[in-house]
């Protein structure tokens, strides 16, 4: 445990030193808050851009509070996932590529602690940033539209967080055997996009796919309650997260490090 803490503290310190604790939360906030703002101010934006020609009538339906918040999450589904992959793709692969892993792992460091400390480090950063962004988005939706109940907010926060955790863990998984951060990023993005596409087009077959967590979160936010597929999906996602983590450790232990 002592060694794990040493490794974990190093991860957090590194993120302080390269300012990840500043720019990642800021980006997550920007991504999330932008949506309710643009939706709310859309008429004014169109006006300021020259307005509509005389006589043209376009009915802009006023979005509901739920739709505004869901819009934030759909941004996370693209930009948020991209940032997570970008941050995580080098955590192990990068250290191996640079050669510093050759110094660290010659010390009696447990491979399991090494991998999990890195995972936990990124987890804290992402969940913190995601909370900041999502909370502010919820707050602005409340101010501009109407407040969504706090329970719904918290529930959707955790459910969608599982999807983000899944993406993060998959990225760590590919880190355990690919040496190039670029390859890790590319493959993880590919898999994430593919999984989302396949799951949404074949949703009747794959209604327990982790990629559908975002869809179920929307249902939650809209105030439509807990979809019945949600619980199994959560369980399957958690299971896959744990499985990938164990697999990462097992593969990492077997790999030659230099």
């Amino acid at each position: 445990m002592k060694q794990w803490l040493t490794l974990y503290k190093k991860e957090l310190l590194e993120m302080v030193r390269n300012y990840k604790w500043i720019w990642v939360p800021l980006t997550f906030i920007l991504i999330a808050v932008k949506e309710p703002m643009t939706l709310y101010y859309m008429p004014q934006i169109i006006d300021s851009l020259g307005g509509l020609p005389e006589g043209a009538v376009i009915e802009l339906p006023v979005p509901s509070a739920g739709e505004a918040l869901a819009a934030s999450l759909s941004q996370y589904n693209t930009l948020g996932v991209l940032i997570i992959v970008l941050i995580t793709m080098g955590v192990i692969a990068g250290e191996r590529k640079s050669g510093v892993a050759g110094i660290i792992l010659v010390k009696p460091v447990s491979y399991a602690r090494f991998v999990t400390a890195k995972w936990a480090g990124v987890m804290l950063l992402i969940w913190f940033s995601y909370f900041c962004g999502y909370f502010l988005s919820w707050y602005y939706v409340g101010i501009l539209f109407e407040f969504i109940s706090f329970t719904d907010f918290i529930q959707s926060f955790f459910v969608y967080g599982i999807w983000l955790t899944f993406v993060l863990t998959i990225t760590i998984f590919f880190n355990s055997f690919l040496q190039s951060p670029g390859a890790v990023g590319f493959i993880t993005m590919g898999i994430t996009i593919l999984l989302s596409l396949v799951s949404s087009s074949l949703s009747h077959l794959l209604d327990w796919s982790p990629a559908l967590l975002s869809v179920y979160t929307n249902t939650l936010i809209m105030g439509n309650g807990f979809p019945e597929e949600l619980m199994p999906t959560i369980l399957i996602s958690l299971f896959m997260i744990i499985l990938s983590l164990f697999a990462s450790i097992a593969i990492f232990r077997k790999r030659e490090l230099a």
């Binding site: 002592k2 060694q3 040493t6 490794l7 190093k10 590194e14 030193r17 390269n18 640079s98 050669g99 510093v100 050759g102 110094i103 660290i104 010390k107 009696p108 460091v109 230099a258």
Partner: peptide
């Protein structure tokens, strides 16, 4: 190693303490 690489963002003292604790 032949071409040792360290964490450039650490100070020399921090790195030694880190590796010491890992050991």
């Amino acid at each position: 190693p032949q071409y040792p690489v360290f964490y450039d963002w650490m100070t020399g003292r921090e790195f030694l303490e880190y590796t010491g604790k890992l050991a």
